[in-house]
Design a protein around this nucleic acid. Structure first.
Lengths: 337, 337
DNA sequence: GTGAAAGCGCTAACAT
DNA sequence: ATGTTAGCGCTTTCAC
């Protein structure tokens, strides 16, 4: 007798329970019209066979897979990471599942989205990464909701997005630094086309201008720790050294603190103010005590989930901007004046 | 004319290209027997319609979905995080995809594995979380490879696993601490049934015993920062305070350093030695300079990928134990004696 | 090299 | 309440 190699089907269960295959389907469909007794008989047969409905087959018919495609722009981002987990928990409740890709170093999520579309995902969630116009249009044609996270782009204006209030955050950091008496401000940005970084920078610059201050010194780091450290070194080696640095995210700010303190021997806060953006867990560690602007993950993901689960027609061009709050900490505290 | 709502099928393409639907299938199957010319005609038609093969339908026939199920035990673990991304990159090359779940606070991955099985995943990868015996057996019956990551359990002895060499790491840390002259050693563990933590602890204890030293003081923390901090406080408040703490992972070790330095005013290294396990990025920050044992993510994930992609028959009970190396750093450096 | 036909495991009318 | 039938979009014989 040949060893059965694939899992049992509804047919197998039907035969064992002495009912039609359709009855089995109904037994596993909440709210379908089936007699309590037959259902129980079917369940018993199913259990004894180890039957489990094949969701691939169901998806084929229903035209929806229950799968949400997620592309992860920056694998190093702790913020994205916690967002992913929050989303996973949230979508589990809605019986949706996450098909995940990492797109390190790629300019767009195209390759992965291509794959995801073949799996007929119900929606797409792009974290810190964009899409080519062509693919964006195809998603729209196929009525697949696309939600952008912490990123906006002209290419795909007609898609929904959820971002932190970058402008407000940058302004608040700017105001705080000025109020603390820092005068030679600098901005440490990310690499190419990170809209998040751009937004924070331009709002920061605009705010300083509105207060009659000169444009800040500027240095671009990169995603990794070493890139951030290099940028910090460049800034701190200048003849006219800045007395405060606003880093586009916490991760870079922590690297900057390390460089300032251990390579330049500066006292953080008094001799050099450093502020970040995002309030990752390490920021509140007393070893860093980093002034930053919070990105409220839970609220943001709540918005994302709502968008992902709502019918595509309803979500065109919805842009949610979620406010954080400034967390003034020791890294921008001038102990004496 | 009604608006087309679902994506075009192979049939649509066939009609447009003037061929049979089977031909379309062949055109998209690498190595299938089809004339160059027909193939091109089909591709053109496909492109103009925006056709993309439906992988759900293909999976239904082929009996394999191309999907690997991943359950994430501890969402806070930076180590798991980088492992996930490494795996994603690796599996992309093999045209496999990751269906991901977060299982925070759950004892087993059962609920999620149940879902994953309905999607007919080709293999399962469980990071720091186990499976009930019942479900484990069902996976075996269905010939679904299961790979455990940084976890072993008696329940599922017959599944493959990849772990770091916890015993070697614990021994090396022990030897290092003794050599540095620390005498009142302590161990800070994780919460319930974390086999990784147990292994490290028992190997640490065994090593100390072999050197004729008493069993270390013991304190259990939990996953989160606050739990770790509390455990550290308990240890440091004892009448006979330990002079060195081996923490079961880096995350807790960093929290312990913060507590020791900022709450107890201890000089790290000289007054209190602290060692971790894993070598996460923050460990090498000069702010912590944490002595630790590396967990080589890339090598481990390489092993995992090989196991996940190999036929289930071949992988019964394969247990890979990957060696790391000790990184002695300042947090266990007794500057003077 | 290509088309016709069967069928993967399921849901959704349509009967009864 | 239940069985029969058709069909989701594809792969895979089997002819030719």
């Amino acid at each position: 007798m040949p060893r059965r190699v694939s899992s049992p089907s509804a047919h197998d269960v039907a035969r064992l329970a002495g009912v039609s295959q359709a009855a089995v389907s109904r037994a596993f469909t909440p709210g379908a019209s089936i007699a309590k007794l037959t259902q129980e008989r079917i369940f018993k047969a199913a259990k004894s066979l180890g039957y489990r409905p094949n969701l691939l087959a169901r998806s084929l018919i229903k035209g929806e897979s229950g799968i949400i495609g997620v592309v992860f722009g920056n694998p190093r981002s702790i913020f994205f990471m916690s967002a992913l987990h929050a989303l996973s928990a949230r979508l589990s409740q809605a019986q949706k599942h996450i098909l995940m890709f990492t797109a390190e170093g790629k300019a767009t999520a195209d390759v992965h989205v291509e794959d995801l579309l073949k799996y007929r995902v119900d929606a797409l969630f792009l974290m810190g990464i964009g899409l080519s116009r062509k693919l964006a249009e195809q998603c729209r044609d196929n009525h697949i909701p696309v939600v952008l996270f912490n990123l906006r782009s002209r290419e795909i204006k007609d898609f929904a997005s959820v971002t932190c209030n970058n402008r407000d955050g940058a302004r608040q950091v700017g105001a705080h630094l000025i109020q603390q008496g820092y005068q030679r401000l600098a901005f440490m940005g990310g690499t190419t086309n990170i809209t998040t970084s751009h937004e924070r920078e331009s709002a920061f610059n605009a705010y300083l201008a509105s207060r009659g201050l000169p444009a800040p010194i500027r240095e671009a780091g990169s995603y990794d720790r070493e890139g951030a450290a290099r940028a910090a070194r460049n800034l701190l080696s200048r003849r006219s050294r800045p007395d405060a640095i606003f880093c586009w995210n916490d991760y870079m700010a922590l690297a900057a603190i390390d460089v300032a303190r251990y390579e330049f021997g500066l006292e953080i806060g008094r001799e050099i103010g450093i502020a970040g953006f995002g309030d990752i867990e390490q920021a509140s560690s007393p070893s860093f005590d980093l002034t930053t602007y919070t990105q409220p993950v839970d609220i943001m993901i709540q918005e994302v989930a709502t968008l992902l689960l709502s019918p595509p027609q309803l979500m065109h061009s919805i842009h949610r901007v979620v406010d954080g709050v400034l967390k003034p900490r020791g890294s921008t505290q001038r102990r004496r004046n």
